[in-house]
Design a binder for these strands. Sequence first.
DNA 1: GTCGTTGCTGGTAGCGCTGTCAACGTTCCT
DNA 2: AGGAACGTTGACAGCGCTACCAGCAACGAC
Lengths: 366, 366
Amino acid sequence: MGRKRTKSGKIRLAEVAELAGVSPITASRFFRNPEALSVSKRTRVESAAKELGYVPNLAARALASQRTEVIGVLIPSLTNNVFSDVLRGIYDASESSRYSIQLSNTRYSILQEEKLLRLFLAQKPAGLIVTGIDQTAESRAMLDAADCPIVQIMEIGPDPVDMMIGFSHYDAARAVVAHLFEQGHRKIGFVGARMDPRVQRRLDGYVSAMKDAALFEQRLVVTTATPTSVTLGGALFTDLLAREPDIDAVFCANDDLALGVLFECRRREIAVPGQIAIVGFNDLEFMASAVPTLTSVRTNRYEMGKTAASMLINAIEGRRPEHPVLDLGFKVIERQSSSARRSDSRPAVSGAGAANKMIALPSSRD
Amino acid sequence: MGRKRTKSGKIRLAEVAELAGVSPITASRFFRNPEALSVSKRTRVESAAKELGYVPNLAARALASQRTEVIGVLIPSLTNNVFSDVLRGIYDASESSRYSIQLSNTRYSILQEEKLLRLFLAQKPAGLIVTGIDQTAESRAMLDAADCPIVQIMEIGPDPVDMMIGFSHYDAARAVVAHLFEQGHRKIGFVGARMDPRVQRRLDGYVSAMKDAALFEQRLVVTTATPTSVTLGGALFTDLLAREPDIDAVFCANDDLALGVLFECRRREIAVPGQIAIVGFNDLEFMASAVPTLTSVRTNRYEMGKTAASMLINAIEGRRPEHPVLDLGFKVIERQSSSARRSDSRPAVSGAGAANKMIALPSSRD
DNA sequence: GTCGTTGCTGGTAGCGCTGTCAACGTTCCT
DNA sequence: AGGAACGTTGACAGCGCTACCAGCAACGAC
């Protein structure tokens, strides 16, 4: 209150400079590059800022310096557990830095992504994190022309825009099928929802592995564009069973679906893994706790987010990574739900996840 | 490329104005309040902007107008399913508006919250969404002094800072206990993790309801500060059973714990609900799909986020809500896991969630 | 002792946009 | 017809900060 528009008590850099007995520009430098100041001025500015409770005006800084300290993040979904892990990594890595995260949701639409990208780039972000490798040509052109570092996350592929961190969903799916073959399963169904590019590549991996073994049949695949859910897993599995009652394993494109399949098996009194094996994807926490424990593919989502943000921040500050493309690999976590066909179906009573055996398969680089 | 620092082809408002044959200020008005322009100028500016691909410079706008179009959101966790639903609502509501969301994670620390609040407020956000009602005195003072609308979400309580939207966790917990009493359960355990203020109030509600029936015993309560997980649900339930083997129901502070308890029962071959009833909290999607289907408390998380953001945006634009405190209520969704003690334990075979019966209990206003 | 070099500091001039206010043309009222 | 009221437009100044460059002192080399 009081004067109407006179900055209402706001502390500006000039005030700090005055109290510290230096010029505004010197005070400014303190916040951007303290090393450049003499020790005496540095401490003077520091204590003046503290005393006045100075907080820089980011808008003015952005306007004057022609760049922001914002990292734009484009992800397809906020609902998905997978992305919340990635996001947590991104936020954790950015927290100790000066950069703030600007999040936008493309809702799995590459056109929406293109629109958001245009908006983001106009604000000159310090860096950009985008999901996947399936941008529109227009988006790709904008990314190529952008004058900030960019990280593509979630998967790796040829021809990165800049940096890239992820793993091969295709190879991971092939590893799952290989594991199921090893355990004696032959008639392996595939259940997938929300067929985004990454799920599609998992399907491709499954198809190729099945074809390699001359075991592929189109009827073994049940997919839908509907967003994923546990309930949907049960429904899709029901469809699959109607088509192919003598199936002996189900590869689910994610863990929610796998849980839904497990419940549906319980409802139908189908023994797992005795009659049917189940494998999920992502290795969410509950997989190790289910009865029977559920086999899944561990992907390093938190690490992916965290590494992506660190790489990006380093690149923004001029420290380019040695390897701009980072394959984080995956691991098939073998649990009870997919153990060998011949084994009896009595679930082991040992603690959840006690007997996890892991097969590590970093997807092939490049 | 080309000129080094000359705005590298950036389109400014002045360019648009020139092409449209109007003054820059008129062009500016077009973007903020198109109604104020004559139709002819409006269309001229519109097409000029489109032709040039003009995107406003937000930093300049913020600097000149002394306010940003940023809504700050403070939540305690990114991991939690609960918050991802709320966030989705917030993002959905903000998407069609000019406001962008700035998210920060307090990690369940009110001191961290205070620090973030100070940072946020210094940037003059257009509005603020904060979680809960347990701020530090300092935070509270800052919120009271803030000159922007504020919404507190997740719960309701006395003495709102400004607007408030949520429900009574205390009443919800009492309703759960009442439901269990109705079904003939008496020895009801409580299992809770990450005892944040809202979980604490659920515990308080449970305790008061149990005391009202003279059935409360401290040994029935098992809690931990550890973050929640399905596995943890099994572990806490194991502890509870060790203390009180003849328990007949478990009220879990959230659904992950409930799922963990269910799996642990299956592992121990305890019939649900035949021997033990299970109730969760939040009604995540999988609850309706589990075998048996799991009773839970439905809270309108997505709606909470969406409504909070809409209310906030309306308030920012001068349209204050009629009722600044909004109780979204809750519903105890009765499912198989808590049906009457006397009933046999054969799970109904009907589709998941088919036989949901709902008891609606909007928590008492004020 | 002079010159160049380095390290630190300050002055000037905007960044792109909007708040304020004044001015204009038009319409409506009496 | 005269004036008020309204709707529409533009000029000016400045938001708070930083890029750029100049200046100054201190130091070492010759």
